[in-house]
Write a protein that binds this DNA or RNA. Sequence first.
DNA 1: ATGAAAGCGCTAACAT
DNA 2: ATGTTAGCGCTTTCAT
Lengths: 348, 348
Amino acid sequence: MNIVTKATIDDVAALAGVSMKTVSRVVNNEPNVRPATREKVEAAIRELSYRPNQSARSLAGNRSYLLGLIYGHPSAHYVLDIQEGVLEICRPQRYELLVHPAIHRDPNLIDEVTDLILEKRVDGVMLTPPLSDNMAVITLLKKMNIPFVRVAPTENKSASPYVETNDEEASYDMTCQLITQGHTRIGFICGHPDHRAMSLRYEGYKAALIENELPLLPDLVAQGENSFESGEMCAKQLLGLPDRPTAIFAANDDMAAGVMMVAHQMGVKIPAQLSVAGFDDTPVAHQIWPSLTTIRQPIRQMAKKATDLLLKQLKGKDIQLPASMLNSSIIVRESTGPLVAVKPGKPK
Amino acid sequence: MNIVTKATIDDVAALAGVSMKTVSRVVNNEPNVRPATREKVEAAIRELSYRPNQSARSLAGNRSYLLGLIYGHPSAHYVLDIQEGVLEICRPQRYELLVHPAIHRDPNLIDEVTDLILEKRVDGVMLTPPLSDNMAVITLLKKMNIPFVRVAPTENKSASPYVETNDEEASYDMTCQLITQGHTRIGFICGHPDHRAMSLRYEGYKAALIENELPLLPDLVAQGENSFESGEMCAKQLLGLPDRPTAIFAANDDMAAGVMMVAHQMGVKIPAQLSVAGFDDTPVAHQIWPSLTTIRQPIRQMAKKATDLLLKQLKGKDIQLPASMLNSSIIVRESTGPLVAVKPGKPK
DNA sequence: ATGAAAGCGCTAACAT
DNA sequence: ATGTTAGCGCTTTCAT
């Protein structure tokens, strides 16, 4: 029973001496309002601390002003960055965000998304990896005829507007850098096969080897599944080789951290005896010792751009450029470098 | 123009041959519907793929079915855990979550919260540290007469229902454990002073020293501010002491990781020459080398319990127990242990 | 440039 | 146990 919460559009109209519709025009920044009228209305709005009721707006206007973010589980850091990027753009336009954690391949996923659309009535949806490539969801979204954008899809790019980054190129550059430092036996740890964007990182690695006329040795390529633990497993495999690699490039930082753990346990010096590189620049990358050379994606920028694309769709604007590319960059730290002869008993 | 999205409560009522109100009763699980009638209605709902329109429900019922989460920035991991805990409980009860990142001490914060309540019309609010102790926000929420819960508040506990954990006790236990391992010079790195919950961790440390008749040496207590970098600074200070500590307990994992980084750079062996303990069990704790002994809070559990408390308030149920305590636990890893004489030239 | 009237799809309050 | 009647506070459509 707070007076603050009570003002309605009628109250404002009465106080300003105009019709309800005129207030509506002012609130929604519609044209055809004389500046003098606009000011009168704005004064009344201020006076009453009027705030339009979203539920009423949604019901009458047949849209919810809600965006849905459906995310699979890359990492907390990634998700939060995306989320905050989205909010930064949509809030000023009076859209809010509904967050939906999803399990890739969960049989309930389709029902949940249907619910998001039918019951919560989100106006648009954003998909992040690995869901950006989930055909079941994409098909559903299309069928429901609801606007959506995808972050970093690798397949069916024509299905929706999207934002991507040059993972493959960055991966190529990283590999080249290792080669330049004198490494010829460079191991690679692949990401989870369900996470298609990960495979582009492998493509970049391959391309660099070929470009530099280095052999692609199957023994030096291990199949991880994104977790720290899988990185450890792969590291044991690669470092246990009779002729082990002098550098290991992992498709994400968690796995790279796993490699470093195993290296430490085996007494292998980084970077003197082994260079290690990761991908993502998660917080662990600079907190680990030695700090990890990795690749940083412009996650927040991608989210902002994607939100922009989505909102433009909602407003019916033609998107001339339904796709957008943002650059990732290599962050060189201490875990990579040329090989160094290690004299036993005299570390550093 | 999709048929799937079109069914309304009237359509269902017509198909089931009952009134709108009866459908409403079924949908909302209200009593006073004969089982036979209920089934007829449910069949019609299924047949039409009917989903109630949230906007209409909200407008008519004068509630939004939206919860607001206002979070300051502890860590991505913490926030996401809270968020998913909230969703796990509120979704089944058909409540959704609006996420609001906030900067503690931001002058706009009050306006933003007002907006969340007046315009987005959230039915209830959850506050996490350090906002749980932000009096400006608490006062506003009270004034607006909106239900709210707090996670881990340290002050004004009677202001709202809340959920807490035994930080102080866990911190006490950790310190005792270090003492048991033979450490008598134990350093402590405090958290950011704005983050009041952090100071309880210091209290636990102090209590353990006193209990064990160890002196509380001011030189061994450093003032950090939660970040990895501040942990490094404090470590340099503590390890630079003429008579340096043999163990350092940091008020969070990020700072503990900073300590380990500095120790590595100085050639100090962990745990042989220095034990290090953290607090939070963030992902970095088990990815770092050596893995970090730390304390795990039941974050998700706290979020679930807090959501439960909030929803009960919304439903007008009396909360007999407006506060709830959940236990944190020590996770012992490799970074702590008794001192070991190190023979130069023979590591491990 | 402004206004009047008609809903949007539900829930609440009150019948029956 | 079920139905009837009014709105909730906006946007839309169509006048003026």
